Amino acid sequence: MTYWLFKSEAEVWSWDQQVAKGDEGEQWDGVRNYQARNNMRQMKVGDLGFFYHSRAEKEIVGIVSVCAEAHPDSTTDDPRWECVDIKAVRPFTTPVTLAMCKADPRLENMVLVNNSRLSVQPVSEEEWKVVCELGNTAP
């Protein structure tokens, strides 16, 4: 299993909207960055990810699971863009802010800490455990 982080602006697509989609999940569409798209191409069903509210909150608020592997993004006719589908697994007991991640030396190499603009990014197994610990949430 691999781990990921999905960034969304809460006013565009929020954790509550993701939860409301239930087990059917929702496609993670609209990504127009090659590196983020390539990350999605590597994902397998069952991979886990953090759901991160960017902009105002800048915090990890939940855990999602990949429920469909890379497929054409339905929001464009351009065949270069693909996306995965994700579903909510559970909320974080305590949201983990970007500031908390930056302050923890165990996360100094985390992509979020060093390149917070990338919308879909890998998370190492060790980083996964640390963030879950910070959020008082079972990994």
Rank of each mutant, 00 (worst) to 15 (best):
M1L: 10
T2E: 07
T2V: 03
T2P: 03
T2D: 07
W4E: 03
L5T: 00
L5H: 00
L5Y: 00
F6R: 02
E9H: 06
A10D: 13
A10T: 11
E11W: 14
V12D: 15
V12C: 09
W13S: 10
W13Q: 15
W13G: 10
W13F: 15
S14M: 05
W15C: 08
Q17F: 13
V19I: 09
K21W: 13
G22V: 07
G22M: 13
D23S: 12
D23C: 11
E24K: 15
E24R: 15
E24N: 14
E24T: 13
G25E: 09
E26R: 15
Q27V: 14
Q27G: 15
Q27K: 15
D29N: 14
V31W: 13
V31Y: 12
V31K: 06
N33E: 10
N38I: 07
N38H: 12
M40C: 06
R41Q: 12
M43E: 09
M43H: 07
M43T: 03
K44C: 09
G49R: 02
Y52Q: 05
H53V: 04
S54G: 07
S54H: 07
S54Y: 08
S54L: 06
R55V: 09
A56Q: 13
E57C: 08
K58A: 10
K58C: 10
E59I: 01
E59T: 02
I60F: 03
I60H: 03
G62M: 09
V64S: 05
S65A: 15
E69H: 11
A70R: 10
A70G: 10
H71R: 12
S74M: 13
S74F: 14
S74R: 14
T75A: 14
T76H: 09
D78K: 05
D78P: 04
D78F: 07
P79H: 13
R80D: 13
R80S: 11
R80Q: 12
W81T: 02
C83M: 11
C83N: 11
V84F: 06
V84M: 07
V84T: 07
K87Q: 13
K87V: 04
R90E: 14
R90Q: 13
P91T: 05
P91R: 12
P91W: 04
F92T: 02
T93I: 08
T93G: 11
T93C: 10
T94W: 12
L98C: 05
A99W: 11
M100L: 04
K102S: 05
A103R: 01
A103P: 03
A103Q: 03
R106S: 00
E108C: 00
M110G: 01
V111F: 01
V111N: 01
L112C: 02
L112P: 02
V113W: 02
V113K: 02
V113S: 04
S116E: 14
V120K: 06
Q121E: 04
P122F: 00
P122R: 00
S124C: 00
S124E: 00
E125F: 01
E126Y: 02
E127H: 00
K129Q: 10
K129H: 08
V130K: 00
V131Q: 08
V131G: 06
E133P: 01
E133S: 04
E133T: 04
E133L: 03
G135F: 02
N136M: 07
N136C: 03
T137D: 05
A138M: 06
P139T: 15
P139K: 15
